[in-house]
Write a protein that binds this DNA or RNA. Structure first.
Lengths: 203, 203
DNA sequence: CGCTAATCTAGAACAAGTTTCAGACTGGAT
DNA sequence: ATCCAGTCTGAAACTTGTTCTAGATTAGCG
C-alpha cells in the first residue's frame, strides 16, 4: 500500500528517466524563484535542456508538471517523516505537529509552495489521477501521524477535512489573506476532530 | 457591518452601472455553459456589448471578473437565506443545513460553480481585497446560521475551518475526485467543530 | 452652447501556454 | 549491420489573456 509513483505506461529508459528528473528539477528551481508564473514552459524546457515538444510529451500541461513536482516534494517529506516521526502523546497532537513541520518546510520556499498549491487547486478533471496521487500521499502522511492501522469511515472523513483545511489554509496564507499564526491556529483547531471521532467516543 | 460591495472609487453613472451588470451577466451566462475556460474575455466583452478595453477597465483580469461574479451570486444567496433561515435545533445543524442548501444550488449550475470556485482559489495577491469580500460574506452567512452575536476567537477559528473545508470540498467535487455524498459527509463532519468549541464546553 | 477631461471603441500588438510538423536521432528486432 | 517505430529537436503557428493606441463619445461645467 505504499503510494509509489508510476503504475502505468512503458518503463522509461535511463536517458528518459534522467530527462524527467532534469525537467522536474528545472520546474522546482524556477518555481523556487518567482512562484507559479515564473514557471514558464519555454524556460523549463531550456533549463532542462529539452525541446518544448518533449517537455509536453512528459507533462501534458503546466499544471501536470507542477502537480508532478508536488508529488516529488511530498515523497521527500514522507520519507523524512518516516525517519523522524512526530513524538506527541495523542494522535491529534502528532498530526498537528506533522502539519506544522510541513508548514515550516513550505515557509522556507514560499514561492515553490505557491506554484505547487496553486497548480493543485486549479487542476481540472484532466489532472485528476495525478492530483489524487498527491492526495493519497497526504492522507498516508496524516494516517501515519495518527498511527492508525484500520481507520473507521468517520476517521477517514476527519482526515479528509484536515486535508481540506490544510490546502485551503495554505492558499489563504500564500495569497496574503491569513497570517502564519492564523494558519497554525486553524490546523490546531481542525485537529480536534481527531479526538471527536475517536471510536471510544460512542458509548 | 453589513457586507456591502463598493466602498471606494467614484460612484458610477447609470450607464456605467448598466454596463457593469451586463458584464457580470455575460460572465455568469458563459460560465454557466462551459465553466472557467468558457469565460473568454473577448466573448464576455462581445456578449456584454462592450469593448475589450472597457471590460478590462471594469475588471482588471479574468480572475477579478469571476470573483466579482461570485460576490454577486453570494449576495443573492445571503439575501435568500435571510428570507428562509435554516430551522435546525442546534447551531451545528443549522450551519450544515445552510451549506447543504448552498451546495444544492451549486449543483444546479455546476459549470458556474466551477468557474467561480476555480477563480477564487487561483486568485493571487492582486485580488486579495475582492477575495476577502467573498470570504466576509461567507463568514457572515455561517455566523447567521449559527445565530451568534459575539463569537469567541475559538468559534471564529472553527468558522474559518468550516470555510476551508467548504471551498476545498467543492474543488474535489468539481474536479470529479469526490462524490456529492462525500462532500455532504465532510460538511457534516466539520460542523461538529461547532459543538466542540461551544463556550459552555470549558468548565 | 461650447469646452475639457474622462471614458469608450475598434483594432493591433504582445505574452505565455499549447499544438503541430518536418527532419534528425535512438533503441531494439531481424 | 540494417531497418523500423518511436522519440527528440527546432521552429513556426495558434489560442487566449492582457496591454496599448488613436480616434470617437460622453459627462460635467462655465
Amino acid at each position: 500500500m505504499t503510494a509509489e509513483a508510476k503504475p502505468a505506461s512503458p518503463p522509461l529508459t535511463e536517458r528518459q528517466e534522467a530527462r524527467r528528473r532534469r525537467i522536474l528539477h528545472a520546474s522546482a528551481q524556477l518555481a523556487g524563484r518567482g512562484g507559479f508564473e515564473a514557471v514558464q514552459m519555454r524556460e523549463v524546457a531550456e533549463e532542462a535542456g529539452v525541446a518544448l515538444g518533449t517537455l509536453y510529451r512528459y507533462f501534458p500541461s503546466k499544471i501536470h508538471l507542477l502537480v508532478a513536482t508536488m508529488q516529488d516534494q511530498l515523497q521527500h517529506m514522507h520519507t523524512t517523516l518516516h525517519k523522524h516521526p512526530p513524538a506527541g502523546q495523542d494522535p491529534a497532537q502528532r498530526v498537528a505537529d506533522t502539519l506544522m513541520r510541513a508548514f515550516r518546510a513550505l515557509q522556507r520556499e514560499p514561492h515553490l509552495a505557491d506554484a505547487m498549491v496553486r497548480a493543485l487547486t486549479f487542476a481540472d478533471r484532466s489532472v485528476s489521477p495525478e492530483v489524487d496521487t498527491v492526495s493519497r500521499i497526504t492522507t498516508a502522511i496524516i494516517l501515519d501521524a495518527m498511527g492508525l492501522e484500520h481507520p473507521t469511515p468517520e476517521q477517514l472523513s476527519a482526515v479528509r477535512v484536515i486535508e481540506h483545511t490544510w490546502h485551503s489554509a495554505l492558499i489563504t496564507w500564500l495569497s496574503g489573506r491569513a497570517s502564519i499564526a492564523q494558519v497554525k491556529i486553524d490546523i490546531g483547531t481542525v485537529c480536534r476532530l481527531i479526538d471527536v471521532t475517536k471510536p471510544t467516543e460512542a458509548p
